[in-house]
Nucleic acid binder design. Structure first.
Lengths: 187, 187
DNA sequence: ATTATACTATACCGTTCTGTATAGTATATT
DNA sequence: AATATACTATACAGAACGGTATAGTATAAT
C-alpha cells in the first residue's frame, strides 16, 4: 500500500524530471497526485523541502539499484568496476530513464549557497566516492583519479542522453571507461 | 560603443548563468541593465526570444574564442586536437567562467519539443562536430567516435565545475583525453 | 518646423506563484 | 457516543510573472 505521502513524492519526482523543477507548481503536483495542497504542506513544509526529499529519494533509489546489480552479478572486486558501465548503460537506456536528478537540479539552482545546489553537489561527490571505493577494492593505485574520470564520463553521458534520448553516447562512454580502467590497472 | 540591445543581452547572459533562467524575471533584467521593459520588448519580442539569442551569442563567443586559440597556437592538425583540452582548461578555470549555456538550458527546459531545449541540443551536436572535424584533419580513423568521447569528458568536466568551482575535474579530464587521443591515433 | 528614432516612466492586465485560513467529511479507535 | 486522524474543498493573501498601453522626453535628420 502506498501512502499519499509517497504518491506526492513520486508525482513530484516525475514532474520535476519531465517539466523542470521551477516550471512545476505545487498546484500541478497535487492535481496530478490527486490530492490537495493542505495534504502536501502537511508532509512537506515548503516546496524546497519537497525538492530536497525528491532528490534524496531519487539518489537513494539509484544507488541501491546499482549496488544490488553489482553485488549480485560480480564476484571479484575487479569485476565490479569493469561491469559498472554495463549497468549504467542498462539504467540510461531503460524506457523509464528520465535523467539524473542532481545534474538537473544543480543547473536550475546555480548558486552554490542554495541548499538544493549544495545537496546536488554532495550527491555528485558521494557517487564519485562510491566509484572510488570500487576502484580501491580492485586494488587500483590512483583510485580517486580513475573514479573522477569515470564520473566525468558518466555525467557527460547522462547529460547527452538528457539532451537527446537514444543518443547512443553511453556506448562510447563505455568504451572510454574500459580504456581508462585497463590503463589504471596496469600501473 | 555598446548599444542598449547589447547591454540587455549581456545582462541577461550573466543573470541566467548566476541565478538560473526561469528564476530571472524580465523586471530584474531591465533593472540591472538600467533600462525599461518597453526597450527590452522592442528588441526581443518575448522572453523566449531573448533566451534563444542569449544562447546563440554565448555559443558563438565560445566557439570563436576556442577556434582563435587553436588556429593561432597550433600549426599541424594533429597538434590542434592535442591542445584542445589545454584551452578548455584555460576557459573553465578562468575567473569569468560561469558555466556552459546549453548544458544549463537543456536542464531547465527538459522537454525535447521545447525550442530552447532544441537549440541547446543543436549546439551540443555542433560542438561535437567541431571536435570531429579536428580529429578528421588529424587523420584519426574513428574521428566521430573520438569526438563523442571527448565531448562527454568536456560536458562532464563543465558539469563538475558548475557544481563546485575549483573542483579540479578538468585536470583529470585532460589526462583522460590524452589517453583517448593517443589510443585513437595509434589505430 | 517637422518628423522619425530611441528611449523613459508608470500604470496596468490577467495569470500564476507559494503558502494559509476556514470549514467540513470519512474512518477508525476508544 | 466521543475523539483523534487523515483527508478534501475552496477561497484567499500577497507577491511575482510575462507582456502591453499610454504618455512623454531628448536628439538628430530632413
Amino acid at each position: 500500500m502506498t501512502t499519499l505521502r509517497d504518491k506526492i513524492l513520486d508525482t513530484a519526482t516525475d514532474l520535476f524530471q519531465t517539466r523542470g523543477i521551477n516550471s512545476t507548481g505545487v498546484d500541478t503536483i497535487v492535481a496530478v497526485a490527486g490530492t490537495t495542497k493542505m495534504t502536501l504542506y502537511k508532509y512537506f513544509h515548503t516546496k524546497e523541502g519537497l525538492i530536497l526529499e525528491v532528490l534524496n529519494k531519487s539518489q537513494e533509489d539509484f544507488q541501491n539499484w546499482l549496488d544490488n546489480k553489482l553485488t549480485s552479478n560480480s564476484k571479484a572486486p575487479a569485476d565490479k568496476i569493469k561491469q559498472l558501465f554495463d549497468f549504467i548503460e542498462e539504467w540510461v537506456t531503460s524506457p523509464n530513464f528520465l535523467g539524473m536528478g542532481f545534474i538537473k537540479a544543480s543547473a536550475e539552482f546555480p548558486n552554490e549557497e542554495n541548499p538544493i545546489h549544495q545537496l546536488s553537489s554532495k550527491q555528485s561527490r558521494e557517487f564519485r566516492q562510491y566509484i572510488s571505493k570500487l576502484a580501491n577494492e580492485a586494488k587500483i593505485k590512483d583510485a580517486d583519479g580513475l573514479a573522477l574520470q569515470l564520473s566525468l564520463l558518466f555525467e557527460g553521458a547522462v547529460q547527452a542522453e538528457q539532451m537527446k534520448r537514444g543518443s547512443g553516447a553511453i556506448k562510447y562512454a563505455k568504451k572510454a571507461a574500459k580504456l581508462l580502467i585497463d590503463g589504471a590497472i596496469k600501473q
